[in-house]
Design a protein around this nucleic acid. Sequence first.
DNA 1: TCAAGTGGTTCAAACGTTTTAATCGCGGCA
DNA 2: TGCCGCGATTAAAACGTTTGAACCACTTGA
Lengths: 363, 363
Amino acid sequence: MGQRKSGHVTLHDVARACGYSVSTVSIVLSEAPLSQNVAASTRTQIREVAQRLGYHPDAYARSLRRRRSLTVGVLAYDLSDPFCIPIVQGIQSGLQPASYVPLLMDAQTQRKHFDSYLKLILERRAEGVIVIASWVFEETNLLADIEKNHVPIVILGRDLTRRKISSLLIDNETGGALALRHLIELGHRNIAVIRGPEEMFDSEPRWTGIRRQAAQSGIKFDPRLTFQLPGVLDPTSGFEGGRALARTMLDAGPPFTAVLAFDDLTALGVMRGMSEAGLRIPQDCSIVGFDDVLPAAVATPGITTVHQPLQQMGLLAAQWTLEAIEAHEGTATVHRHRAVPELVVRGSTGPPAKAPAQRKART
Amino acid sequence: MGQRKSGHVTLHDVARACGYSVSTVSIVLSEAPLSQNVAASTRTQIREVAQRLGYHPDAYARSLRRRRSLTVGVLAYDLSDPFCIPIVQGIQSGLQPASYVPLLMDAQTQRKHFDSYLKLILERRAEGVIVIASWVFEETNLLADIEKNHVPIVILGRDLTRRKISSLLIDNETGGALALRHLIELGHRNIAVIRGPEEMFDSEPRWTGIRRQAAQSGIKFDPRLTFQLPGVLDPTSGFEGGRALARTMLDAGPPFTAVLAFDDLTALGVMRGMSEAGLRIPQDCSIVGFDDVLPAAVATPGITTVHQPLQQMGLLAAQWTLEAIEAHEGTATVHRHRAVPELVVRGSTGPPAKAPAQRKART
DNA sequence: TCAAGTGGTTCAAACGTTTTAATCGCGGCA
DNA sequence: TGCCGCGATTAAAACGTTTGAACCACTTGA
């Protein structure tokens, strides 16, 4: 057809094809206020031609001129962690009504990706940035660049309010306490604990909450039954870690009737490990997880866990971002919110066995 | 500082700050061939100032001028389906080396999103489009628009080669046959089957493969043990469907020793349902899934399933796209590939029980 | 008759880059 | 002396839009 060098149909093409000027066509197709002055016949004609040629406005040219990208960068540390998905969906639905679009980037737990995607988001002139950071996220100096360019940031999973960055957190302490309390209320006293890896921000506060609750209930943890996951590479390593630790704790001595796992994948790993050792869940040993991700919900028995309102958190993050964009240069308030966790009781927990957990069969 | 109306630092700002012209600065910062002619001292000075001001080139202006966006649109039908994630990761790693960036959109199984995101991808001048379509994907006329604008498309999960669109498929027939054969080899004869919902493209060929294998092995399915999942809303509905059907099949008569489920989530649902009825997996009933998604791998027992090389498929899709972009207007070959499925045997299958499955306890 | 609308349409400048062609001072060469 | 080449830098046009201001041919009110 009448295509030019570039493969795309432009305003020019449409203008030429219907005999009007570029301006008129633009006014009509972008439904500018002025389009009321354009004769109705002209309007329909232009629209018709545009449709026929398959015209779509060039977002680059448009954003350049309008100086708005209607884009919010979303940087997730790893999409293959089921934890991220509901958050992203929440963000998406929060952005929707303002007709903003997420520019979604998956860092795949690699620092270099993290940096380059942050740069990319900046170059694409996202009007705001939302970072989902459960780890990897060390204070890049790119953050400084983002601030220099006056792009508002919201961070999920980490408190950076002291750096004037709105932060959205899970109340890990309360969550940890909640999980432990549940076990205690069921009657468990000898409880094995698996702490998260050092690199994760969630590990420490969760452990703090657990100890707080333990102290409050007059419970002591046997150090021989307190473990720590090694550094994480990918989300499934939590599973393998839990599985391995299950054997360790069965082999290495002291009796216990329940396991408090760092997160759901770890809990699932423990469940597998226990099962391989011939134990039944929850009759021989109760297991609690954390996060309430999909695999925990659809396992059998379902994993009792601490639910986090991930979707709402995503939504809120989106709203904060939009608000900050709106405020523009103005007084962008720095928010902080701790989402309240909720215990979800499923089949993996029950009253303690009379005889404490011990290996029943060999694999 | 010396900021203008727009919050962003521009080439102009840098030029003014260091006393050189915009051209020189551009040449240096974009490392154009000409930059060899620029005095070394000038170069370092410019770089230094740019760094200090936090300059990042405007992707909009740049792409507009260069007429390249270095972007490939990726439209997933639903990111919350764990099925999508490995594909997306594959795509990402396939795009990486060519320094293309995925523009990732999640249609969330909503038709309207699908359309508007496809439009958006077009407007953002993605140089190629990859569609992950297990359903919802009816022939939008937007597809025609994409073609009019000469943007190459690759589609995953559907054969559209007759419309000259490169298509990447799972060999559902072989996969279905594989799953059934496994059960037969274990000695199962009375097998319940759960077919996929009509709306999904995978349902029919998978069922065809199953019947082919059945005929070949001289097996007949009892129509009272052949079910179909109702239309799907979200990925978890497969779970609920399976759970409900487990009860149905136990209640409604004929004996069976194994269940062939449409996909992993359904299989997990069946497992839950069976367990609630007091049956043990695999002793009392074997279960096979399809897809090999994360929840199936980390459940206990692990779900025996048909693995699909999702990541490689994503990679391949990315490579095809890049190739088509490269060819540009030229002879873009239309590819078709059927990925070969592979059986993954886990704990959910075993030899048939002496006594066929039947309800043991009430919930 | 003239000024002031009015409805319909267009000019032209801008947005922030990239890139081709030009500019400029200067030493060397014939 | 005039010309060339050279190294360093810059002017200006283009990419596809949007938009305030202008334009034009009318009509209308005074």
